[in-house]
Write a protein that binds this DNA or RNA. Structure first.
Lengths: 154, 154
DNA sequence: TATTGTTATACTCTATAACTATA
DNA sequence: TATAGTTATAGAGTATAACAATA
């Protein structure tokens, strides 16, 4: 058993008592996020979109015409990330770009008719992703988890 | 206000009542994981390792000599992911490969002396990452969150 | 001048699939 | 056949830098 006066270096090898990976919040978050992504892919597979692409489409459907960086802020993606996501949505024909007459820096985005049809069909089944991800928990536990997560999320 | 007989397509545009992104578990998980990663990088920045590289080093420190895919299973990474992580750890000189005399398919991994020194120093501050990530919560809430997350994580 | 938006590049992580080698 | 490892491809996320436009 661990003596009180052994050093960290002595204790760490083959004795994880000093630091265990499994109960760390970052590790558990990565695993939970992994499983949520897997469920998203299995439920939404037919639509050929990723979770972030779906988030961008859903938000664009809610707010209508919006600039690229503003869409990123609304979906928790930095400018570089939203740029990559939007360029793939453009390639799929779900989104079109235009300019803002009042501010030449802005790239304004809107859903195409194809994009509107697609996000309608996606939203109809998207709730199933959350339901399946939270299946191991009771409803009250699920609410508690969402509350705690939103309090540690940026 | 929303009439009971309007269709999903009519309701979805500019009226997010039918499906909101923000309270979905996958979205909240992504944001929480984002913040945990940012805190990891700010606390562990001096060591020039990523969260998954740290996980692999910490586990390797605990279990000693182990095959590459087994290390992946122990740290929740699939073969392609652990392959990329290990190849970067090899480049940094933290890990060495060897063969298994009983099974020529296996690539066995071990920490180098440099790797052992590095992971010792990392473990000494790694707890600060979890502390800071969970700072918005009480201790009891933190325990509850870890419990709920581990139950929905693969 | 300082800030904002966009684009570009580089690196890492994740997942799937195809492939080789071994058991 | 089943498993282990490797490789290719694609998307996502992050960081950084460069540049244009705006305040």
């Amino acid at each position: 058993m661990a003596a009180a006066n052994e050093t960290a270096a002595q204790r760490s090898r083959h004795d994880p008592a000093g630091y265990r990976l499994e109960p760390q919040i970052g590790y558990v978050l990565r695993r939970a996020h992994q499983r949520a992504t897997q469920i998203f892919n299995s439920v939404m597979g037919e639509f050929k979109v990723t979770p972030t692409q779906f988030a961008a489409l859903a938000k664009l459907d809610d707010v209508g015409r919006v600039s690229q960086n503003e869409l990123g802020r609304l979906t928790a993606m930095d400018p570089a990330t939203i740029w990559g996501v939007v360029s793939r949505l453009l390639k799929q024909g779900y989104v079109v770009q235009s300019t803002d007459p009042n501010d030449a820096r802005l790239v304004m985005l809107e859903l195409t008719e194809t994009g509107r049809e697609a996000i309608d069909r996606m939203k109809a089944v998207a709730a199933e992703v959350s339901r399946e991800t939270l299946a191991p928990l009771t409803e009250e536990e699920s609410r508690k988890l969402l509350d705690l997560l939103s309090r540690i999320g940026s």
